[in-house]
Structures are given as C-alpha cells and as structure tokens.
Amino acid sequence: MSDVQKKKFVVTRFDPDKDEVPKTQEYTIPVRPDWKVLDALNYIKDEVDGTISHRWSCRMAVCGSCGMLVNGEPKLTCSTPLDEYGDEVHVAPLSNFPVIRDLVVDLEGFLDKFKSVKPWIVRAKEKAVEEGPCRQTPEELHAFKQFSMCINCMLCYAACPVVANVPEFLGPAAIALGHRYNLDSRDEGAAERNEVFRGEGTVYECSYANECSEVCPKNVDPAAAINQAKLLAVLDWMKSFVTPRRGGE
C-alpha cells in the first residue's frame, strides 16, 4: 500500500449492560483509497478492537444489513465510498430505532408493521400449479416493479421525520411493499390492505417530507408509493359505498 492514508473514525458505542447512554470511541486507522465505510469498520473489528458490534454480510448493497448513520446521514456503509469524507468520519446506529448494541438496531417493530400490510399475494382462490404461470405484460410488471426493489435496509425509517415523532407510523418501506402488492395484476388483496392503510398511523400520517425517497439506496421512491397508496385507499373507500366489497369474503 504505497498510498497509505489515515482517517479517524468516531464510532458510537453502547452496551446496555454497562452504559446508561451511548458514548463515542475514536479509532485512527490506515485506509485504502478504494475502501467503503464498511471496510474501515471491518478493519477496526479485525485488527484494533474486537468488541465493536455491527451487522453486515453481502458487501454488494443488496442484503440490507449494514445501514448506519455516516456523518449523520443514513447510508448503506458497504456502498458508501470513504473518499467522500474528510479526515474524520462519524459512524452511528440508524436513528429512530431502539439501539441493541453499538451500531446494531432493533428491527422487530418494523417486522410487525411489515406483516400488517400483508406483503404476499392474496387471491380469493389460489391458482393451481398445473394451470401454469399467470400472464403479466411488461407494462403490468412495470406498474409495481420499482416498489418491489426494497431491500428492507431501514434507511428510510431513519430519515423519516414522522417516524421520529410517531414511532407507530407504518413507515415508508412497509407502505411501499404493501402498495407493491396492490399494484400487482395477480393480486386480489387490495381491499384488505386498503383497510390497513385507512387505519391510524398509516398513509395519512405522511407529511411529504420526501426524505425517505432521498436516502433510498435502491430508488424505490417510497414517498411516491405513499402518495399513490393514499389516493387508492380513499378511492377504494368511496367505491365501497357504491359496489359490494371485493376480495377474500
């Protein structure tokens, strides 16, 4: 490594058995010019301080494990180049989540919200395998594809000002994924999901800050999903006065 450069990392540490509140710890380490933020954390873990805890796996921005705040912004650390930062880089756990330890946050709340939108195909009668695949035109696929790209990395929850104030808010990823099924030509569960969306703490809580779409590393555009979901939930509600409810019953 001829072009060895050093950087200081200020990492938030928290062990619930020892610490009342989170503290920070500094590490100055050699870095390579092509490193991502995650590479530096892994170097610290392997060579400097084995007690630091963070989640990561694929290091190719698709497993969604390594979301953290880098200099205060929600980032996937495995795809965030270190050279975008100066000599000092702050790494902290994602905001708006309870912290379990160091850089590890609690995802259980999200998983409950996620399940509540029924993120699976709902059909009155399930199609038999023998009938073969459904037809779905490229246009029909395009209608929902973008919203199916969510990797559950939670950056949108960390960025969302509504989640910060109303922790029960269903949140950007869960709404986008529920909406994704509502838009799928193979699905018949929109009525059930729209009922969820019309409940408290869901689509109407959104304040259009658009922060979720700005931090999304996969261009899912959850803000657009929330807007569309809101409109469809209202239309569905109005339609329910005119026509009997479709769906599971």
């Binding site: 459904c134 779905q136 035109t137």
Partner: peptide, 22 residues
C-alpha cells in the same frame, strides 16, 4: 418448472416477453 411456477403465483416479478409469458 413447477417450483418456478409456484414462485410466480406467489408474486415473484419474473421478467416477461411482450405477450406476458415468463
């Protein structure tokens, strides 16, 4: 083919030809 069809029924966004076939 049966297993991949099941995944299709479960919502996997398989790429399609112009007629909508997988």
């Amino acid at each position: 083919p049966k297993e991949l069809t099941l995944l299709e029924h479960w919502g996997c966004p398989w790429s399609r030809d112009e007629e909508g076939r997988v």
